[in-house]
Write a protein that binds this DNA or RNA. Structure first.
Length: 722
DNA sequence: ATCACAATACTTTTT
DNA sequence: GTATTGTGAT
């Protein structure tokens, strides 16, 4: 089992039980050590798999880890990794809370409020408290509440020592009470409630102490205070806690993560062994040199020496594109060249960017080129309106007290329930002290008397019509499978007719609903609650399909823990990387630098750094400067068409001389009608050629039927002599 | 009172 | 490009 490990890794895997901290750079096999440790505990030390708990960062990582452990154990342990408790902190916490819901301010049927639910709830609270949503921004308030929660500060303890804090304090209180009235918990509550549960109840704590003998945590640098507290509470009496991390890859400070947990760990477990893994097995030395030139600029940090025996490798290529479309085309053309040359499979290439919005231009370019791609993250599926609609209906069935979902659903599709009617419904609910969902159920079942005072005849009849549907669904929930329940709801409300108007968009929206139904079919065995929990906790990050051999598009954050032969980091402009919002905070700037470092160190063989001269930022196009980080890269490992490793002044000078036409423009080499040969696309005819700054953009119609936009400097076009 | 369409202000990163 | 809000028509 330990065959494929080197000495350092093997030492880490087989280290005696007890608190252990593995600190290691990128590509050193941290996660590998963790999985081997789990398998080693089970196979060699005879540990019961059910007594092991492992925590990872995403559900995808958890699944991968599960299957790796299964493979490792397959020869020795029949059944593989069955019974191993593995998941994110949030998923493990949710499981714990459902089990002990009787001690919580919510019932076992609680639903998890996602980001947009939280936002609308905060908005409601702001309005109810008569603050101006323009002055008191919901996002900022929510952020403050969220950080408080991740520091385990509940609203009673929230210190209101500034004007803004006083406002937040009042909103926080109302928000929390509202959540409870909705029978909902947000992401932070999952952790905070778990900590409170374990702290307040000795019997529950004892139960978990008894349950786990070994606890392991991956990506430890990204745990926040609540997660660390939870970790401590779950640590078994044997103190066998094994954590793995790298402070240089800490990129979730904004979410409350605190890499000082590493120091806290050493203080809390003074006997902890510290194991360092130094060698990198992933990248070429050139890539590591680039990475070091970025990370070693950070102050208060011992300079890291990353080394590999993989050799020097190819130099890092810098490219300046004209705009984001051009940027995307460069990426696609380069991938085409590399795959044709046999340097990499399409599926081994990744395109990384700072913000999700940047994926659009790249996606469009892929679509236009007719090439497949894989997109990680953002709200691709579960954020869609039609999907959220159906999910809201399901959530209402699971938990009729969920006001947010009720409000979403009440007039979707339109059924004559407008703002006024909604208001009178809320009034009726508040006055009688029941949830609006209950009012509707009552109305549907003919119990209208208690609410007569608040509802005029119009409102009552509209609400009654809707209310009649609810009990049917609640019953169907018991009798029908998940997908049949969805069918029933869609039929009852005429949802297809509502969204599928026959247009292309309408069909696409309906397809998304069908897709949701298909996902539900996979959950046949699981109940509605588990399905909804899965939807809330498993973001699209995890929907990545491994089987498609296509380049993958993802944010730098989402790239954490992954590796690719070829990496493109696009949008290396000041304001994107580092992001504008970090400019005035040195800590945030340090995090931007670490983020760039994480991106660089994902690359195994080749790294392309791309920026663009113009960029559209919500509609308006504006010019941009190269990222300040680029000038930290050593010139001797760079190549490409522009400004590697220069100082900012030199860079500015170079750009000015080439753009202000002091330098002679490069001549066009191709004209329309010329026959050319491309290494990937084959033979074709030039349709059009135009000079784009100092590069030539050629439009070629290939014999395969494809029409491509190519940059002459990259495309390696040969003129056909026929 | 409700609906459909137009104008308006925001978009970092995620469990 | 998009969620939320505002306005006028029905």
């Amino acid at each position: 089992m330990l065959d494929h490990l080197n000495h350092q890794q093997e030492e880490a895997v087989t280290t005696p039980e007890g608190p252990t901290l593995v600190l290691a750079g990128p590509g050193s096999g941290k996660t590998r050590v963790l999985t081997h440790r789990i398998a080693y505990m089970a196979a060699e030390r005879g540990a019961n798999l059910q007594s092991i708990m492992a925590v990872t960062f995403t559900n995808k990582a958890a699944r991968e880890m599960q299957s790796r452990v299964r493979d490792l154990l397959a020869p020795t342990v029949p059944g593989g990794a069955r019974g191993l408790d593995l998941g994110t902190f949030h998923a493990l916490a949710a499981r714990m809370l459902r089990r002990h819901a009787d001690r919580l301010p919510v019932t076992r049927e609680f639903v998890i409020f996602d980001d947009s639910d939280q936002r609308s709830l905060v908005r409601d609270c702001i309005k109810e408290l008569n603050f101006d949503p323009k002055q008191v921004q919901p996002g900022r308030v929510l952020g403050t509440i969220s950080s408080a929660k991740s520091e385990l500060i509940d609203w009673k303890d929230f210190s209101a020592n500034t004007y803004f804090a006083e406002i937040v304090h009042r909103i926080y209180e109302r928000y929390q009470l509202r959540l409870q009235a909705n029978n909902g918990v947000d992401f932070d509550d999952l952790l905070m409630y778990s900590v409170q549960l374990l702290e307040a109840h000795d019997d529950v704590r004892a139960q978990y102490h008894h349950r786990y003998n070994h606890v392991l945590v991956d990506e430890f640098q990204d745990t926040n205070t609540a997660q660390y507290a939870l970790l401590r509470l779950l640590t078994p009496p044997s103190r066998d806690v094994f954590v793995v991390g790298d402070a240089d890859q800490s990129i979730y400070r904004w979410r409350g993560a605190d890499y000082r947990n590493v120091q806290r760990f050493q203080k809390d477990y003074p006997e902890a062994r510290v194991i360092l893994l130094e060698q990198n097995y992933r990248s070429t030395q050139t890539i590591l040199d680039a990475a070091m030139s970025i990370i070693n600029r950070l102050p208060n940090r011992h300079v890291k020496k990353l080394f590999t025996d993989r050799g020097k490798g190819t130099s890092i290529e810098l490219h300046e594109a004209y705009d984001e479309g051009d940027e995307a085309r460069f990426v696609i053309d380069t991938i085409a060249i590399l795959t044709h040359a046999g340097e990499a499979e399409p599926g081994e290439c990744a395109v990384m960017y700072r913000t999700n919005a940047q994926s659009r231009a790249v996606e469009e370019a892929f679509l236009r080129a007719g090439l497949p791609y894989r997109l990680v993250g953002a709200q691709r599926f579960y954020g869609r309106r039609e999907v959220k609609d159906i999910v809201a209906y399901l959530r209402l069935v699971q938990n009729p007290d969920d006001r947010i979902s009720l409000l979403r659903v009440l007039n979707t599709p339109s059924r004559g329930i407008g703002a006024k009617t909604v208001e009178s419904l809320m009034q009726a609910a508040d006055r009688t002290g029941v949830s609006p969902g209950q009012v509707l159920k009552d109305l549907g079942q003919g119990i209208s008397a208690p609410y007569d005072a608040d509802l005029d005849r119009r409102a009552a009849s509209a609400l009654t019509d809707f209310g009649r549907l609810l009990p049917g669904w609640l019953e169907a929930r018991q009798a029908l499978s998940l997908s049949d329940l969805i069918d029933r709801i869609i039929r009852d409300i005429g949802y297809r007719e509502y969204i599928d108007d026959g247009s292309e968009e309408g069909t696409e929206r309906w397809d998304n609903v069908v897709e949701l139904r298909r996902v539900a079919e996979e959950f046949q065995k699981v109940d509605l609650g588990a399905f909804l929990e899965q939807i809330a906790l498993v973001s699209d990050q995890d929907t990545l399909t491994d089987d498609l051999n296509a380049p993958i598009l993802l944010t730098l954050h989402a790239a954490k823990g992954l590796e690719f032969r070829v990496v493109f980091i696009i949008g290396l402009d000041d304001g994107m990387i580092p992001h504008q919002r970090s400019f005035d905070d040195p800590e945030a700037m340090a995090e931007e630098r670490r983020l760039f470092y994480v991106g660089i160190t994902r690359a195994m063989d080749r790294l392309y750094l791309v920026r663009s001269f113009r960029r559209r930022i919500y509609g308006a196009s504006s010019m941009s400067e190269p990222s300040r980080f680029l000038s930290d890269l050593p010139a001797d490992i760079m190549s490409g068409d522009w400004l590697g490793g220069q100082t900012a002044e030199q860079a500015t000078y170079t750009r000015q001389t080439s753009w202000e036409s002091t330098a002679p423009p490069r001549q066009a080499r191709y004209t329309a009608g010329m026959r050319v040969i491309h290494p990937t696309f084959g033979e074709g005819i030039v349709m059009e050629s135009k000079m784009d700054r100092d590069d030539e953009e050629v439009v070629v119609a290939f014999e395969s039927g494809d029409v491509k936009h190519l940059l002459a400097s990259l495309a390696n076009l040969e003129t056909a002599t026929d």
